[in-house]
Computed example of a mutant assay.
Amino acid sequence: MLDLIIDARPASLGNGFTVKRILPYRLRRMLGPFIFMDHGGPVSFSPEQAPSMDVLPHPHIGLSTVSYLFDGQVTHRDSLGVQQIIRPGEVNWMTAGRGIAHSERFEDPATLAGGSLEMIQTWVALPEADEESAPTFENYQPDQLPVFTDTGVWLRLIAGDAFGLKNGVKTHSPLFYAHVVLQPGARFGLPVGFPERGAYVAKGSVEVNGHTYSAGQLLVFTRGIDPILVAKETCTLMLLGGEPLGERYIWWNFVSSRLDRIEQAKADWQAGRIALPPNDNAEFVPLPQDKSRPAGTPPPQPLS
């Protein structure tokens, strides 16, 4: 029934902010088109800490970034000139296509006054036909995201199609992504019709087939199996998956079906050919030194 259990690993963003890294994982690089998943927080910080927590302008290609908050707020700025505050229950969906740069800054007075911040960020790889598309950004408000309720069950559809629900979030391939809260004893399944499906336990614990799984675990389910998840306590789940896209390379913030395109993106960022956000261009994240392999060794294998 369970194909794999992925335990989140701590990952530093390099600014004192440590997140739980779920995808990619060495035994499971992608889940449907989802190629990256981080769970940040819950964390509280002071006004003095805030500048060091900011994610400075940095580039992306070949993917959509999807930001979803449980608590707090984040200010997004990008090279299209967009400035957008994202709050809990909203979705920021940025499609990088051929290239975009953006920043994420923690400027919320409530958070700076000691409130908490908690968010999930995923990356969705693009089909080959859309990898070089023009970059776009959309913010979707909670009233644009359908909610389903039943005894002990609350669900918000973030994107895609699931459980007979749809919304206007623009996606590029068949997928589902949902935020679910279960009360103790509630039973719930996964959407049918998708070859790759998983459930990330963000809070609490669930039982599947007599085994209990806790916060920080991504449950990846065998194709053709329709599991029942039973809440052992009040729990929060992120359900995700969809149709696989095929092989992808990932390096830093770049995703592509072609290794040479990753190399081009490195050169473009280093040479300043990917524009910075016009309202946040005083600083940026430099291209990291690639220490992944010694000179002369074969290139990395694609993700599939």
Rank of each mutant, 00 (worst) to 15 (best):
D268R: 13
D268M: 14
W269A: 06
W269P: 07
W269R: 02
W269I: 09
W269K: 08
W269D: 04
Q270G: 05
A271E: 11
A271D: 12
G272F: 14
R273G: 02
R273P: 10
A275E: 11
A275Y: 09
A275I: 13
L276D: 04
L276Y: 08
P277A: 12
P277S: 10
P277I: 14
P277F: 12
P278S: 11
P278I: 15
P278R: 06
N279G: 11
D280S: 12
N281K: 11
N281W: 01
N281C: 15
A282P: 00
E283R: 15
V285E: 01
V285C: 06
V285F: 10
V285R: 09
P286F: 07
L287I: 11
P288S: 02
P288M: 03
Q289A: 05
Q289Y: 02
D290M: 02
D290H: 02
K291I: 08
K291P: 03
S292G: 13
S292N: 08
R293P: 01
R293K: 11
R293W: 04
P294R: 06
P294A: 07
P294T: 04
A295S: 06
A295P: 00
A295D: 01
G296N: 07
G296R: 08
G296Q: 02
T297E: 06
T297A: 08
T297V: 02
T297N: 01
T297G: 00
P298D: 00
P299N: 03
P299I: 00
P299A: 05
P300H: 05
P300E: 02
P300F: 07
P300M: 09
Q301W: 00
Q301D: 04
Q301K: 12
Q301F: 04
P302S: 02
P302K: 03
P302Y: 01
P302G: 01
